[in-house]
Amino acid sequence: MIPTPDLSHLTKEDYKHVYEPAEDTFILLDALEQDADYLKSLNPRLCLEIGSGSGCVLSFLGAVLGSTSALYLGTDINIRAAQATVRTGLQNKVSTSALVTSLYEGLEQRIKHQVDVLVFNPPYVPTLEGEASVAQDGRDIAGAWAGGTDGMAITDQLLKNVGGMLSPRGVFYLVAVKQNDPEGICVRMRRTQGLDGEVILKRRAGGEFLHVLRFRRSE
């Protein structure tokens, strides 16, 4: 058992602006833990989490792989989330780095075929299209969940380029809910990115049917 990262430094005040780890976070941690041996066997050196929020997942990944074994880099559009990512790393003795950016903007040119482990627990809740773009511009807590039509407005922007980012041995973990059409995402990723995807974990929690998808290059 790998313990859930210590988040005792984050307060109610922080969680007014930064996504508090919830069932979607925890299913992702469970998936990473289930894959721990596989992940270690890849010897990942560059781990990138998009939308790292509290930094819980990135610190957990550091615990799985070893705190000095890789660069643990998180991006978030929300400044407070980027700060929380760094603080959570310090609290858990994983030196996480954070950038304020949308998706991977600013990294695109240099991380072509370089990312060994890519993780995204996106804003996946279906909302009106306008609600998602207002939330994106707000760069605050609403941006953590508002996902536009099918909940895929933000995720789709990342999916377009995952094949271009992953290193030859790279792997990508994505959280999705039923309404996002996980099976359809896998089909699309095979067609457009040449990546094989599968649902590696799913569970019902509250009103949501959560899935963790894993993508890798076809053999």
Binding site: E105, G106, L107, E108, Q109
Partner: peptide, 23 residues
């Protein structure tokens, strides 16, 4: 904590700025 390891991965991404935009 911007360390040089992260800085080494960053390039300018302003629209149309795609040469001599790194480091």
């Amino acid at each position: 904590m911007v360390r040089l390891i992260t800085h080494n991965l960053l390039a300018c991404h302003v629209k149309g700025c795609d040469s001599n935009n790194f480091p």
